[in-house]
Amino acid sequence: MNERFIILMEKFFENELDEKEKLEFDSLLLNDHLLKKEFEEQKRIKEVLDKMKLKNPSKEFWDGYWTSLYNKLERGIAWIAISIGALILIAYGSIQAVNQFFADKQTPLIVQIGTVALVFGIIVLIFSVVREKYFTSKHDKYKEIQR
């Protein structure tokens, strides 16, 4: 498609054509029936588009937008604090439990070996999942769209 025609047509739709450009645009439409056809097609879809607008939420929605965002920010910080607290408590509890478990002389050796294998397996599994997630994020196909 004639790039000059596209620019003139876009300017026409925006009422931005000056006199010289208007004459040039009219001349293109008059002398090339394919361009005229293109113009008519674009005009038709523009007319449909001009009848539509995006749904606008109520005034209350806009009034509450900042408050809602503020609450989300606040909750985000709360979740971070809760997660850190939970991780610390779980880690401390786990260490204490393991210490007591192995300090108990009455626990049979086979149970201790089984427990070590179970914990080792869980740690490897978690490491594998985390590594996979990290690998996926490194190869995200939308990664080039950076903020």
Binding site: M1, I6, E10, E38, E41, Q42, I45, K46
Partner: peptide
């Protein structure tokens, strides 16, 4: 402008 033209054409 060019991308808009082709997008509208596809929409039409």
């Amino acid at each position: 402008m060019s991308k808009l033209y082709y997008a509208r054409k596809k929409l039409a």
